[in-house]
Amino acid sequence: MIGLKYCGGCNPFIDRTALVQKIEKLLPQGFKLSTDKPMIPWEKGILICGCPVACANRPEVKTLARQWVLISGPMIDFEKVPEEKMAEVVAGKIQL
């Protein structure tokens, strides 16, 4: 199970819904995304924030998973990525 946590979505620079759909399609069988609060921390999580402020990137959120891929607007883990390549990069990081 891959954790999925969204920011509140007040100023999205990217289409968060479309991005998550693309990521889901790229993940191999057996990988499933979940927004339910976990009983024990997820092994991996995708923190998807619409803009560079990444306001959901908070300590209490970070405890929900052991390892995170942070999407903050046009950036993945603080590196700018073209929107059309974002899903591919995230899926790659999840499978590592």
């Binding site: 560079p52 402020v53 990444a54 990137n57 903050s72 883990d77 603080f78 590196e79």
Partner: peptide
């Protein structure tokens, strides 16, 4: 400032 963010 309050809306700032971390860089690489």
């Amino acid at each position: 400032s309050a809306e700032g963010h971390k860089t690489a």
